[in-house]
Nucleic acid binder design. Structure first.
Lengths: 256, 256
DNA sequence: CGAAAAGTTGATTGTCTTCAAAACTGGTGG
DNA sequence: CCACCAGTTTTGAAGACAATCAACTTTTCG
């Protein structure tokens, strides 16, 4: 084992200009979704100067792991990740699924080391955003500073939503909310709003939703029986969005 | 109703220097816990210049509410707050309990309006930190910039912990984790590490922990029967911390 | 192709919720 | 000062939902 732990499972960092074509935020097709949102062309060029490396992460391998030193945020270029935390006793909880344009690694800032694992669910690629340099630049570029704050605040708000889901919803509602959130984000990225390929297992969905994998499977089957979905393993077609949305509205006994 | 919604339920903002004694971060006893952490004396003085108002919030009244425009973060000086989110159908979920030195309002940054309610559980007082001025100053004071990032990152990590709790723990474990977290934070503020007065109802604890109030009450009773706690309504004495900690370790069927 | 991983489905169990009633607390007004 | 009342808490009994245990099928990947 002569390689660093980080390098063991993924391809070596590659300079961006490798292929001759300059790969930078300025001409990235995720411009509208990712870090450069709200920045002027000039400001994006400055952002380009600090994003000097990308990393390819193979399926099932970690982008980072709990306990590793924090030094960068990562903007996902392609692929999907899951993040998960682990209790002392080994239980773990998937805290999110991230896709193109989304930022992972924010957990590492507070104690200068990561407190969750980020694992690629398919072969993926990320842009490395060295955090100290982001900090420096955001002192000069107000729009970047504000965008960074918004990214962090958005994550806090997202997690509030997950807490609501985990704290108050029943299995059917959780799965409906999960699917609706997923297609909504996929649609924003140009994919179908009715068809999706799940990149995660029933187990991982269950972990995220606070359910056992059998319950996830059964709930999929029930939705299919009722004609709301067509489910063929990882491939899900949403047949009746409206009814799926209504699953969220109808709770058994209101608390009020 | 000629008053602004904000002013209806709480005392008017008061200039800090009212009583002659200058009230500022520089001589605040929460210096070590709150916003000034890691700042030099000089930097704290600069921080003082932008913290010009405090607000007193009466028990059961809101510091802010969902939908209100965001313009400031709030550092809690005295008292305890709960934050909660509400679904379209009315269900709500307590997302946290905050005490002296902690910052609330981070949820408002992303969309420039608050997405949760912050309600005082007892008569409380907060320092108002106008967010645009925090932004300005943190461009000049690196330590403040980094501290702000850490505060937001810490909140993200805390919420990961809550997700783990809600997604994987049983009622006893949830309540044990809740109590241990609470005394730990109280102890850091100079209170007893074995005795605590709950400022929230069983209902609110239940909402936070994803349990019904009856379950919370029953679990308290069980802990008391087993000699781990003494419970007299809101007053809780932790008799056997070790055993309370062990509740967290022992899960029924390990997933592994 | 074959082994391992992932997914489905059924029967049973357990934990928490729901529904209900009673006891306690703190604040208000007679 | 005490009675009263609303809000809170406790406790019991019954029911619901998801977990568990188990068997089997399907898919994936080396």
């Amino acid at each position: 084992m002569t390689t660093l732990p980080d390098a063991a499972n993924d391809c070596p960092p590659s300079p961006l200009s490798l292929a001759g074509m300059k790969v930078a935020c300025s001409n990235c097709n995720l411009r509208e979704l990712c870090m450069p949102v709200g920045l002027s062309d000039q400001e994006i060029e400055r952002l380009d100067t600090l994003i000097t490396t990308r990393r390819k992460i193979k399926r099932k391998t970690p982008l980072f792991r709990t306990g590793e030193k924090f030094h960068a945020l990562y903007a996902i270029r392609t692929g999907v990740f899951k993040t998960s935390v682990t209790a002392e006793d080994g239980r773990d909880q998937v805290t999110g699924f991230q896709m193109a344009g989304e930022i992972v690694g924010l957990d590492g800032i507070v104690n200068d080391q990561h407190t969750c694992d980020a694992i690629a669910l398919e072969d993926s690629e990320v842009c490395v955003l060295p955090f100290d340099r982001i900090g420096e630049l955001s002192r000069e570029v107000g729009a970047l500073q504000h965008h960074l704050h918004r990214v962090m605040s958005r994550e806090i708000v997202r997690e509030h939503g997950v807490m609501l889901l985990l704290g108050t919803m029943r299995a059917e509602e959780r799965l409906a909310a999960f699917l609706l959130n997923l297609v909504q984000r996929l649609q924003a990225r140009g994919f179908s709003r009715s068809e999706l390929v799940l990149r995660m297992t029933r187990q991982e969905i269950g972990s995220y939703l606070g359910l056992k994998l059998e319950t996830v499977s059964r709930t999929f089957s029930r939705f299919a029986e009722e004609g709301m979905l067509e489910v063929h393993q990882r491939l899900v077609r949403i047949v009746d969005v409206e009814r799926l949305r209504k699953v969220l509205a109808q709770q058994p006994g209101s608390t009020f």
